[in-house]
Design a protein around this nucleic acid. Structure first.
Length: 155
DNA sequence: GCCAACGTTGGC
DNA sequence: GCCAACGTTGGC
């Protein structure tokens, strides 16, 4: 099965895991997503899909780099780990609740695209762009090809 | 199934 | 650290 490459935006707190960390390790399992909508987006990802790496809770929140999806979704091991802060006692190996994908480093932006920059393009990005919708807290969200192009033109 | 209480996200 | 927004939980 093969469909066209899709695009996503994934948020990370840089104190926890930044684009520089991804550049160092190259490939990282995107652990800790505990929101069903975000999980479902990861389940629909395909290897090679483009990822905008977004820093949240940062001095300047925004897009700092590009990554790509390196695996399809599989169970997030931290849900079974009693010592992990992501442990979920309702998850079992037979019936996992939470999935993740591995993400591979592609490049760091020459110039980060700040949330302010992104908001300034709200008209071009459209009402449906979840990142700048009021109150949005999704940590994994879809980006259309047109939005991807618009965003990267701001670099 | 409703909804109040609670927890989390994330910008500021 | 504050707080608005929103998701989840659990009593009923």
């Amino acid at each position: 099965m093969s469909t066209r490459k899709r695009h996503w935006l994934m948020k990370s707190e840089p104190d926890d895991f930044s684009i520089d960390d991804l550049a160092r390790v190259q490939v990282e399992p995107w652990t800790g997503v505990r929101n069903y909508q975000a999980r479902n987006f990861m389940r629909s990802m395909q290897v090679g899909d483009g990822v905008l790496f977004y820093h949240s809770n940062a001095p300047v929140p925004g897009i700092y780099g590009i990554a790509e999806v390196a695996t399809t979704a599989y169970p997030d091991p931290s849900q079974f780990d009693r010592k992990s802060k992501y442990f979920d006692e309702k998850a079992t190996r037979e019936q996992p609740r939470w999935d993740l994908v591995d993400v591979r480093y592609v490049r760091t932006l020459k110039r980060p695209i700040s949330l302010d920059d992104i908001r300034a393009e709200a008209d071009a990005l459209g009402e449906d762009f979840a990142l700048i919708r009021k109150g949005n807290r999704l940590s994994v969200l879809p980006v259309t090809a047109a939005q991807w192009k618009t965003l990267l033109s701001l670099e």
